[in-house]
């Protein structure tokens, strides 16, 4: 693009002094400074873009923390919601139950699915399965919630229930775990498999004892991401989980369950200061939970990378 074979330019005769052919020193200097300026503008724009990413993070977090802590009482964590006041113990407990339930379901289905795609699926044949899972992750959350409502809650008579909530949320986040598992397993060197095979291990045994182990941090990270998303979802839960002022019960069906995103969406429109406070505190708790999970996943990544670096160093 800017490569000009030396000697082909006619310094004074060029009809287009801006063109690359013009190599008069003054023109080249001017052009160079213009290119430098364009470059500076470019990097300036990039820096502005970075600021454009950082600013909303800071703004949102500051706003959430500020309004959440404005009149913070620890009793929010220990008392149940009474109407639009009280605490959020029921919602915190409900969210934890939902997240643990989702983690169990998705942990089984997602990891198993990822193992199949990475280990058993014949090369070039898993496209449909893999694609199906990836595309599922693009389905709008409200569509999942809607279908959950009309089929599970109404048609199957599950009512507002933990079961309906778990089913819808699990469908929503299972692609994350499938993907994480597959990617982690594929990044385990083939030598591991070859080695265990050379030792005469059955591949199921080798998978469990040799291949899965190095892939585990990645799988756990994917699982944590899935849990973080489950914590923050609203649309799929509004019409499946319902809401309850009480602590979660042992009933899977016909027992509405509380969750933290509900007060944010519902209470900010209520006429009471207590409701607004709960909405603000719930938003704060949601952000803290989500960030906590991200930090945990980061720590897992960091620790395992350091570990694998040191352990591979002697070789």
């Amino acid at each position: 693009m800017a490569t000009v074979p030396v000697g082909t330019a006619l310094p004074t005769a060029s009809p287009h002094p801006d063109r690359a052919l013009d190599t008069r020193p003054s023109v080249r200097r001017r052009r160079w400074s213009r290119r430098r300026a364009a470059n500076a503008v470019y990097w300036g724009a990039c820096a502005a873009a970075l600021a454009g990413v950082a600013a909303p993070v800071v703004w949102v977090l500051a706003g959430v923390v500020n309004s959440g802590l404005r009149d913070w009482h620890w009793s929010v964590l220990t008392t149940q919601t009474v109407g639009t006041g009280g605490g959020l113990l029921n919602a915190i407990a409900g969210t934890l139950v939902i997240v643990v339930g989702v983690a169990v379901i998705v942990g089984i289905v997602g990891i198993a699915g990822g193992i199949y795609l990475a280990e058993f699926c014949p090369e070039g044949r898993g496209g449909l399965l893999r694609g199906g899972s990836e595309i599922l992750s693009g389905a709008p959350s409200i569509v999942l919630g809607y279908v959950g409502y009309v089929t599970l809650v109404v048609r199957f008579h599950w009512g507002f229930s933990l079961a309906a909530a778990l089913a819808v949320l699990s469908v929503m986040v299972v692609p994350y775990v499938v993907k994480a598992t597959e990617v982690s397993l594929r990044s385990v060197p083939t030598a591991y498999r070859d080695g265990s095979e050379a030792l005469g291990m059955p591949s199921g045994y080798a998978l469990r004892r040799v291949v899965l182990r190095p892939a585990l941090p990645g799988i756990v990270t994917g699982l944590i991401v899935a849990m973080a998303i489950a914590v923050g979802e609203t649309a799929p839960l509004l019409y499946t989980a319902g809401w309850s002022n009480n602590l979660p019960t042992a009933h899977l069906f016909h027992a509405p369950i509380a969750y933290l995103t509900y007060p944010v969406w519902t209470f900010y429109n209520q006429p009471y200061a207590s409701a607004h406070r709960l909405a603000a505190v719930a938003a704060l708790l949601l952000v803290v939970l989500a960030l906590l999970m991200i930090v945990v996943s980061r720590i897992i990544v960091a620790v395992t990378q350091r570990h694998s670096e040191t352990s591979s160093a002697p070789h």
């Binding site: 990617v183 498999r193 694998s308 591979s312």
Partner: peptide, 23 residues
């Protein structure tokens, strides 16, 4: 998605025989 890689810097070789890494 950040996924820790078991052995950093090593590219993942495709399955050698077209039957997946299990060989």
């Amino acid at each position: 998605m950040t996924v820790p890689v078991a052995s950093p810097g090593r590219p993942v070789p495709p399955a050698p025989d077209g039957r997946g890494p299990s060989g």
